[in-house]
Design a protein around this nucleic acid. Structure first.
Lengths: 103, 103
DNA sequence: GCAATAAGTCAGAAATTTATGACTACTAAA
DNA sequence: TTTAGTAGTCATAAATTTCTGACTTATTGC
């Protein structure tokens, strides 16, 4: 979801950055699930049916790059990776809840 | 930006509805401009360069249908149409500003 | 009537996103 | 050392969004 900058100051426009990060077919759902519990790739793929590896992978990367999620390697029994909300990610939750409330 | 419903309750997910309404290449910008002053189609087309009639037209319709903007026929000198933020649209502004602030 | 402005619509093309299926890399157990 | 689990990548195909240019309808000025 990267768009070329226009000559309008589109980037400095009302929340455009975060809106862009959260647009995409599965991003809101991913974010919601991450807000409930740490995410694992394989279970995410199972939970969000209709989705696919490629898209989820890219979405997770973008949410990560935007600083909303972070990748954590869990060195345990079955070595695996978890995605957690970052501080910034957590701070977003109440704002999204506000949005939700006014739907 | 209309997506088919999945078996996940994607629609009831954290602000998904509004996020969807506000995703689209020019929607945040349109919304921002509408928050500043009433919009007219022709000037919008001039202001958001890089955009086009078709897309703006659809975007305005979707923002209208979502209850964020309303179409007002102005019966004056050059009879024309203005798009205004609705009450709901106005209530969205501070929330988007919050989002903006945490970018 | 004739041209101009305003606000679009429409069909088709181009660009961007999302989906599919095959394949890779690492770890660990049998 | 073969198999299974986890987390992906890659090329390509399909679907969706956005863009382009021609056309439409209504109102107003000349």
């Amino acid at each position: 979801m990267t768009t070329k900058k226009t000559t309008n100051d589109a980037e400095t426009c009302l929340a455009q950055g975060l809106l862009k990060v959260l647009s995409g077919k599965w991003k809101p759902e991913i974010f919601r699930l991450a807000a409930e519990a740490p995410l694992r790739f394989s279970s995410l793929l199972r939970q969000i049916q209709g989705s696919n590896k490629q898209t989820l992978s890219v979405a997770l990367k973008e949410l990560d790059e935007a600083g909303l999620l972070e990748k954590v390697v869990v060195k345990q029994k079955p070595l695996h990776i978890e995605y957690h909300l970052t501080k910034k990610g957590k701070s977003l939750v109440p704002v999204l809840k506000q949005l939700e409330a006014m739907s």
